[in-house]
């Protein structure tokens, strides 16, 4: 029971502190910009009499670009909104009145985690859905394997959320945020090194990228999601800037799942054993 009370208060906090609404307003502005750009391009292509296959490919590329931006926003949203909830409340002493209630500490932690999951899921449904709806209305195209693509981006968000929680049970808010963003940056850079390594057929560079993905699998989940969602042609000829010369395997997705559970385990263990 306590776990759902905590989840409820965490979700309400995001709403009441206007975090969620501000993110959605910014998201709305983003969708408007995306739609406007797409609209003019589509109009131009038709007036130039561009061949429909080419038009479709460009629409897919635009869609992937939009999803890439949403993915980036989701990464920042995940880390920035959740980083203060544990370390901040420990530092201010707010946690003391909660942790002395007849509710286990793991319930406090998991309650907060579920609260953020609810908020981030809402955000991702609206944003990923929004980009697809806008693209579909204007060009008639929407993501291939939308469901698995969504689940992969969702999982990326949950991995980052769990890592941020784990960090926040050890470090201050600022330090946790810096480490979480730094880890994602590492994964991001690793991903590009892997891509170029595959392009230039340098196995050792690919290995560096794989190791970076092991350290933080967030970015590799995005690359798998991009692979799932974009056009089969782009994947086949591998010309899109978001496509993936070296596609993370299902094993990597499985690894990311284990990684998520481990991070959550570390967070719970540390939170139940530390002084508050």
């Amino acid at each position: 029971m306590g776990i759902w009370i905590m989840a409820g208060v965490t979700f309400r906090e995001a709403a009441r502190k206007k975090m969620l609404w501000m993110a959605l307003i910014a998201g709305g502005a983003f969708l408007a910009l995306f739609g406007t750009g797409l609209h003019y391009q589509a109009k131009d292509f038709v007036s130039r009499g561009m061949n429909p296959i080419m038009r479709r490919e460009i629409a897919f590329t635009m869609l992937t670009m939009g999803l890439y931006a949403v993915n980036l926003l989701a990464v920042l949203m995940t880390i920035l909104t959740s980083v203060d909830t544990l370390s901040g409340e420990i530092a201010s002493g707010t946690i003391q009145a909660i942790a002395t209630k007849p509710i286990s500490r793991w319930q406090v932690l998991m309650g907060k985690w579920f609260g953020f999951v609810a908020m981030l899921t809402t955000y991702l449904v609206l944003m990923i859905g929004g980009v697809n709806v806008v693209t579909y209305i204007i060009t008639g195209v929407y993501a291939r394997n939308l469901a698995s693509g969504f689940l992969l981006i969702w999982m990326e968000s949950l991995v980052l959320l769990s890592v941020t929680f784990a960090l926040a049970t050890y470090f201050s808010t600022l330090t946790s945020g810096i480490i979480a963003l730094g880890l994602h940056g590492l994964a991001f850079l690793g991903g590009w090194i892997e891509q170029f390594g595959a392009f230039t057929q340098t196995q050792r560079a690919v290995n560096v990228g794989v190791i970076a993905s092991m350290l933080m699998p967030s970015e590799s989940l995005w690359r798998r999601a991009a692979f799932e969602m974009q056009s089969p042609l782009a994947n086949a000829i591998r010309i899109s800037p978001f496509s993936t010369l070296s596609v993370p395997s299902p094993a990597m997705v499985f690894y990311a799942g284990i990684y998520l559970l481990l991070a959550l385990g570390v967070a719970t263990r540390r939170f139940t054993q530390r002084d508050l």
């Binding site: 906090e13 009441r16 201010s92 002493g93 707010t94 009145a97 002395t100 209630k101 007849p102």
Partner: peptide, 20 residues
Amino acid sequence: NVRTRAKVGFLPEHFRFYDW
């Protein structure tokens, strides 16, 4: 003990709570 806490009240030294 979690269950005992149901019978305990606590006013922390610097009472802080969700101010919203």
